[in-house]
Nucleic acid binder design. Structure first.
Lengths: 359, 359
DNA sequence: ATGAAAGCGCTAACAA
DNA sequence: TTGTTAGCGCTTTCAT
């Protein structure tokens, strides 16, 4: 049986109330020495608070809920990791629930979480229709991170797509390109529109006239990227550079260029977006802009914790900036070797253990 | 305030004990009608059990712990998803804790979980040194899935690497190859050895003599795969097919072949292993064997639940079989188009919502 | 500054 | 078959 507050109280010759105050950082006034003594004793006795009892009493819980479409989908995992890490700082844990793109599962998830006295929820990359409705959250606090529905919701954390788009296109402009194509993502993602706007703004600031024929619509996957790139490259006056809507589109563009006998980056420069693994594995490796998932996760957890502890906070959307990762697909003098595949920390670790076991 | 058992009791004109029995599937004998009546009433009143109170009382919890190195690492995410899905069937949730390859964090994680009355833990892809020691788990049940330390631990779920390796090599043999090279992974992964053994066994069964010079040691990354493949291809009598230790090695092999002016699969057939995303994005797409992460996750959750509910169960390691995914890198008549990039279910969903909002 | 005691919602031993 | 009641470990009000 685990050590309880009562046992500590007996050992310390004080009441349980005093021990509770000492151990839960209560702001109830008490002598510094007693507190000190109790804390040390508890430590020595191996006391660990029973969170369940604590939750029952306080109707609060150090567990928050994370509701996402699917934890395995492209960016969600990193977001969740960011959430976990930020939560850990304040002693919280999270329970992750997948809705599998079914908004009905959301209300169910919320109810399930409610049974655990969960006070806060982070909606992560959910396609839910929160906009339209009517989730019964009671008085739980909630926050959105990387939401996939229209913009300007309070308490949300999103990537700064405009900033990132500028990073990508400005890079091409700086390399001297004037005829720059763009392959948009599906209109269903609002990021597509933002990245496109950034493209237009960058051109404008550089005094490059906008040419409609240089813009194709893809849907963020390789195959559409391939087809869209083909069209651009078949233009009477084809682009010398393409800002692909994301890394998969960039990969499709590389393939299209190869099939036309064009060399990347020599004949065509390509920038991607997202910095998925493929960007560092492709040949050439893809210059891209990071989608700062980990940081967004952290920011969302931070926001929720503020909401939980300080009550209301600023309602503005938080935009997190990514950064440009220069690799091979744009040239740019950076002809250095690819950045792929450093042995992972796991491998380091395994090898260390292996060594140790030998001895 | 949420509806409690007491309110249901008053409304039903029975005692709380009766309600408790009706609602918690107690095996205490009671009249079917009363139970029925109470269940319906509770439903109508919007009653949801307070799990926290329940846990405090029973010292059990419907939450289990998942301890992994890093949820974002290659296979862990899918394993966790498998765990979640299987747990859901029995009404469990999980809390995932990352140890970041630091075994010290493990004991800490266990203690943190203990505070939540967690009775079961799944160790997922941890590099921990459980073998050597001395984690204080008290009477908690635990299970390993895809553990990365030496073999034959009770209550663990692992991939059947021997079976998978045979799948890969037998495929090459069936395609008529007799001179088949192999690039092993790092000796730190026990999977390397298994895949190698499978390679030898397959050759033997096909009556192909083993040739030491056809085996190179890589470390499962692209760069080492590239170098190892170079060596094999520089052999006086180079292989016509290579079983790469994993997909990244296969990618490096493709690059090496390309750089020597060889066509894949025409001049060199390549099989990978793991079925990571890159396998369906590379050019050519890579024929590979799946690492059945999702299924392993499910199996591990199932095992833990058995342990929790039925007490002891069979101790044997559970081996989960993967399957061969035939793509382009081995030829095999399967010259069909690449299998890349169906629009994701998320996109489908988003487009549906978009449509709906238009109306 | 400390203690006594109530009670969070539930389950289960015991009683009827 | 149903009811009464103690108590899980903790926090917090109220009293001292």
């Amino acid at each position: 049986m685990a050590v309880t507050i009562r046992q500590v109280a007996e050992a310390a010759n004080v009441s349980v109330a005093t021990v509770s105050r000492a151990l839960s950082n209560s702001d109830h006034p008490m002598s510094v020495e007693t507190r000190q003594r109790i804390v040390e004793l508890a430590q020595k006795m191996g006391y660990h608070p029973n969170q369940v009892a604590r939750s029952l009493r306080t109707e609060r819980s150090p567990i928050i809920g994370v509701i996402c479409d699917d934890i395995t989908s492209a960016f969600t995992t990193a977001i969740v990791r960011g959430i976990q890490d930020r939560l850990k700082v304040d002693g919280y844990f999270c329970i992750v629930i997948n809705t599998d793109w079914n908004p009905q599962n959301e209300q169910r998830a919320i109810q399930d979480l409610a049974g655990h006295s969960i006070e806060g929820i982070i909606f992560t990359e959910t396609t839910h229709q929160f906009a339209n409705q009517e989730l019964n959250l009671e008085d739980r606090k909630y926050v959105f991170v990387h939401r996939l529905f229209p913009k300007d919701y309070p308490h949300s954390v999103v990537p700064d797509e405009i900033y990132g788009g500028r990073l990508a296109v400005d890079h091409l402009i700086q390399l001297g390109h004037r005829r720059i194509g763009h392959i948009k993502g599906s209109p269903a993602y609002y990021s597509s529109e933002d990245r496109f706007q950034a493209y237009r703004a960058a051109l404008q600031d550089a005094g490059i006239p906008f040419d409609r024929s240089l813009v194709e619509i893809g849907n963020y996957d390789v195959e559409n990227g391939y087809k869209a790139a083909q069209k651009l490259l078949d233009l009477p006056e084809p682009p010398t550079a393409i800002f692909a809507g994301n890394d998969l589109t960039a990969l499709g563009t590389i393939y299209a260029a190869q099939d036309k006998g064009l060399r990347v980056p020599d004949d065509l420069a390509i920038v991607g977006y997202d910095d998925q693994q493929i960007a560092s594995l492709a040949r050439p490796t893809i210059t891209t802009v990071t989608l700062p998932c980990f940081q967004m996760g952290q920011a969302s957890a931070e926001l929720l914790i503020s909401l939980l502890t300080k009550g209301e906070v600023a309602q503005d959307e938080i935009k997190v900036k990514g950064e440009l990762i220069v690799r091979e697909s744009c040239g740019s003098g950076q002809t250095a070797r690819s950045t792929i595949s450093k042995p992972s920390s796991r491998l380091d670790r395994l090898e260390a253990i292996r060594e140790q076991q030998k001895r």
